[in-house]
């Protein structure tokens, strides 16, 4: 896998996946952008990184979910993080970064050292360093000391080591995404039975 640098935030990339899911998991890239009144180059960074993480396949101007992408979009917020963590660890970018952290004294790297590692212009001129840091933080692969501008390695415990938050229900496993089907649509019984929903839509 070639080194691809994130040029988007995790939340932003997830937005692209949500958008793709709304288009039944496969869509022309230009139409995707059009749906949110965006220019193509506004969704390209998210698309690039999603495909670098193996969540999305792009071919001939068409984007579609990989199996992993389908699993991602139908998972809970916590499980999605775990997927990102596993995928990020496989990227050249984070393999290099984590190895460098491993061998660094105290397992710490400054912003400048990080920029040097990837021959990037150091912060704050370039957002790349900040983006890498934030992805690493989000996936809990690294910690970051914003006061000293230092990355710190995380001896990562397996995700199960952390008690799950609340008694969360198992994620709905339909590839169509969370909340597929009327039963999952509300926390309490839906106000109108499914049969009438279509009737209402038709009436409208």
């Amino acid at each position: 896998m070639p080194t691809t640098y994130p040029k988007c935030s995790p939340t932003e990339m997830q937005g692209l996946l949500v958008l793709l899911n709304a288009h039944k998991g496969s869509e022309d890239v230009a139409r995707l952008a059009d749906d949110l009144d965006l220019e193509i180059d506004e969704i390209l960074p998210s698309l690039d990184f999603a495909s670098a993480l193996g969540l999305v396949r792009v071919s001939e101007g068409n984007a579609s979910f990989s199996d992993l992408g389908k699993r991602y979009i139908s998972s809970t917020i916590r499980d999605r993080k775990a997927i990102l963590r596993d995928q990020l660890k496989k990227t050249t970018l984070f393999r290099t970064l984590l190895r460098a952290l491993e061998s660094a004294p105290d397992h710490r790297l400054t912003d400048e050292q990080l920029a040097q590692l990837f021959s990037l212009t150091p912060a704050p001129a370039d957002a790349s360093v900040q983006n890498i840091v934030n992805w690493g933080r989000y996936a809990e692969l690294i910690r970051y000391d914003a006061e000293e501008h230092v990355l710190v390695a995380v001896r990562h415990a397996p995700p199960a080591a952390k008690p799950p938050a609340g008694n969360r229900p198992p994620p709905p496993s339909t590839p169509q995404g969370p909340g597929a089907g009327p039963a999952a649509a509300r926390k309490s019984p839906p106000a109108s039975p499914p049969a009438e929903q279509s009737a209402a839509s038709a009436a409208a």
Binding site: C8, D111, P124, A127, V129, Q130, N131, N134, E147, H149
Partner: peptide, 10 residues
């Protein structure tokens, strides 16, 4: 949008 790690200048 970059996730801004901002801080004071050196």
């Amino acid at each position: 949008m970059p996730e801004g790690v901002t801080g004071d200048p050196p």
